[in-house]
């Protein structure tokens, strides 16, 4: 009987090994360990054995049964594993194929520059002020110390709608309107917007372009505040290593007036084609608000002072991104626009 048992064990182990899939393996399990299987038969046949042999044989049968069961489980695990492997192999993909594109547009580069500047100034307590593109001569010129026969009006060629109405040539009228509306209270604003000049469109001129101006009015506002503020601005826009320098200039609405240069971000100041070998790039005009402008807006220019600055947004974008033709900003070629997808911190 022991021999029979061993033979049976050999036989079942062979069958287990031969089982090619879970179904076949299950058949083996049912055939050998099932109620009608030979091992059950052997156990049933134990009654014929002597009392001494019975426990010995019982132990042997159980050992074989446990062994077979273990082998069955191992084989099952193995087969399952193989099945999974086969499935995985079958499901394998070419990971180098392109992903399903998620459509993502982006801001226009000019908006991008404006929002970057807006956010910087918001962090310094500024509000964003906006005004109409079609303006009164009064706000565009007169309230800014540019009376009708002022020679500096030659500096800007204006699109007039009527004698008294025009397309604003600068965002400064927003400053005049804001000051007037504040009725003597302090002002701290940034004014972005579209402006218009009678220029023929070419690589460096556009009859429509964008400006962003800043204005601070209050007690004890001084030129060092202007300089410090512009230093923060240029470092944010062009890099922490940038320096600024102020050069005297003239604008009717500020006194003193200065133009501001930033140290060349390409060569660092040693001279290159971007800075025309000077090491410096002119980026904006600014100054202390002219007392006439303050007085016209209802302030006492003896008690309060202010500073203002104005930036050409296209110029900043052209410098920052190396754009060589201002017309790109208004052509809206997707091959241009999509280049500004990348976000910057």
């Amino acid at each position: 009987m022991e021999q029979q048992l061993n033979q049976l064990k050999e036989e079942v182990l062979k069958k287990i090994e031969e089982a090619a899939n879970l179904k076949a393996l299950n058949e083996v399990r049912v055939a050998y360990l099932g109620k009608k299987g030979p091992i059950t038969d052997l156990l049933k046949g134990m009654g014929k054995l002597s009392a001494e042999e019975r426990p010995k044989m019982g132990a042997l049968v159980n050992a074989v049964r446990e062994h077979v069961t273990a082998e069955l489980e191992a084989k099952a695990a193995n087969l399952e594993d193989q099945a999974i492997q086969a499935q995985l192999e079958q499901e394998s993909i070419d990971v180098t194929l392109p992903g399903a594109a998620i459509k993502a547009g982006n801001r226009h580069p000019l908006t991008r520059v404006i929002e970057e500047i807006e956010d910087l100034f918001i962090s310094m307590g500024y509000e964003i002020a906006e005004g109409p593109e079609v303006e009164k001569d009064y706000y565009n010129f007169e309230a800014l110390n540019l009376p009708k026969d002022h020679p500096a009006r030659d500096m800007q060629d204006t699109f007039y709608i009527s004698e008294e109405i025009l397309l604003r040539t600068q965002t400064s009228p927003v400053q005049a309107r804001t000051m007037e509306a504040k009725e003597g209270a302090a002002v701290r604003i940034i004014c972005p917007g579209k402006v218009f000049r009678r220029d023929s469109d070419d690589a460096t001129h556009s009859h429509q372009f964008m400006q962003i101006e800043g204005l601070v009015v209050g007690e004890n506002i001084c030129m060092s505040d202007l300089k410090g503020t512009l230093d923060v601005l240029t470092k944010k826009m062009f890099g922490a290593d940038r320096e600024i320098r102020l050069r005297p200039s003239f604008f009717p609405f500020t006194e003193p007036s200065v133009e501001v240069d930033v140290s060349c971000f390409k060569c660092g100041g040693t001279g290159c084609n971007v800075c025309k070998q000077t090491g410096w790039i002119e980026i904006l005009g600014s100054g202390m608000v002219h007392p006439n402008v303050l007085e016209m807006a209802g302030y006492d220019s003896k008690k309060v002072s202010g500073f203002a600055f104005g930036i050409g947004v296209e110029r900043i974008a052209m410098l920052k991104y190396g754009v060589d033709d201002i017309r790109h900003f208004y052509t809206n070629d997707v091959r241009f626009l999509s280049q500004f997808e990348r976000a910057e911190g």
């Binding site: 993502a104 547009g105 982006n106 226009h108 908006t111 397309l167 208004y330 809206n332």
Partner: peptide, 12 residues
């Protein structure tokens, strides 16, 4: 987010 690019065109 919907996949559009922002354009800026002339007011005139």
């Amino acid at each position: 987010g919907a996949g559009l690019y922002q354009a800026v065109t002339y007011s005139l």
